[in-house]
Write a protein that binds this DNA or RNA. Structure first.
Lengths: 205, 205
DNA sequence: CGGGAAATTGAACGACGTTCAAGTCTTATT
DNA sequence: AATAAGACTTGAACGTCGTTCAATTTCCCG
């Protein structure tokens, strides 16, 4: 019976990978249970033995996306001196552009992180929440260098504001809505605003 | 036969109003053709005599939402001196906070403006596009005061970046995702970043 | 080898937007 | 006023979706 649960875990893994592939290729709206069943080689109903519902599947895919994003940010911030305040703005710019590059390279999967809404009444599980919060540690360190006297609470608030602002520019930009920054100008504009914000924060520290 | 088209137009108007009401109350996902038919007092199929499909209906609702937003922004910028550069940042802050207040007060309708995706292959009609672009005139005026020597192209780009950044903070904030600025702190944080950006732009003009 | 439990199946369900053959009503002409 | 022609309206039916569950198959251990 060890065998059974083992195979189940393998199938679940395959299911998540198939879902990831489907989302990456056709977007969140292109994720269809019947396609997954065929891709994994099981019946339609069997999906619900591996996973409670489609929401769980999307969350599991999101978890993998966040892990890759985390790795990208870790790479980008490696070697930045946490104490020194001179290059803190540079670090923020690097983080923002890494985030932008990741969004570009993982467009549909990255969108899914924010587009997905749980089914009516369903609640986001704890592990998915903490996963998301963890990402802020990258922003928090340079912010602390820029404003050493700010409270931890204010810094956390500021980091969310900063993230949301950059995120907003990227979301609309990569959507190519005509209201947005053209995708070609994205990196430049991100550098502009992050530098303005970083310098502004530093000077009135 | 004048009578007929007249009644059709009235019914179409009623349909749009019913759709607006439905979206405002239950969100874009809560817009159902069968409910609309009942609300307007026609059969399910008759909807497709008044409107080509649900997409058109959503666009018509969006048009009304944009008109109200435009009015709110016109109010907020009335009396701001276009030439003077001192209060240009103040004007930008006022615009941003008016936008935020509008989003709060029209949460579901405002979200619909950005959540809605046209059906596969369908193209957004021209009138819907120009409607959206018009809104930027409010941002452009104070930006021009802050950076008088910048090209029109750069100013347009900058205005989109500024809009997207503020928009991003508001979208995530009003969604109450845990990654976002808490809704209670929204206005404060918006003022912080718009002021940082405005002051930064002015000083290095 | 056999029997009870567990896993698997896929047809069926309900909801959705959309379509269309059939029915009804309007209008213009005689 | 009668009637033919045309336009409008209807709601059952279609295809798609996620999800369920009675029936079946498979598995494991005594």
């Amino acid at each position: 019976m060890v065998k059974t649960t083992e195979r189940r875990d393998q199938q679940r893994e395959a299911l998540v990978l198939a879902a990831e592939r489907a989302i990456a290729e056709r977007g969140l709206a292109g994720l269809r249970a019947r396609d997954l069943a065929e891709a994994v080689g099981c019946s339609l109903g069997a999906i619900y033995n591996l996973v409670q519902d489609m929401d769980e599947l999307v969350l599991r895919v999101g978890s993998r996306t966040l892990a890759r994003l985390d790795a990208a940010l870790a790479d980008a911030t490696r070697g930045s001196t946490p104490g020194s305040s001179d290059d803190a703005t540079d670090t923020l710019v690097a983080i923002a552009q890494t985030y932008c590059a990741f969004a570009r390279a993982n467009l549909q999967l990255w969108r899914t992180l924010f587009e997905h809404r749980m089914a009516e009444g369903a609640i986001v599980p704890e592990w998915a929440i903490t996963e998301q919060m963890t990402m802020f540690r990258y922003i928090l360190a340079p912010l602390r260098a820029l404003r050493p006297r700010a409270s931890e609470k204010d810094l956390l608030l500021l980091s969310r504001t900063l993230f949301s602002a950059v995120h907003g520019v990227i979301v609309l930009g990569l959507e190519e809505k005509l209201v947005a920054v053209p995708a070609a100008a994205l990196d430049g504009q991100i550098e502009v605003i992050v530098r303005l914000l970083g310098d502004g924060l530093k000077q009135r520290a």
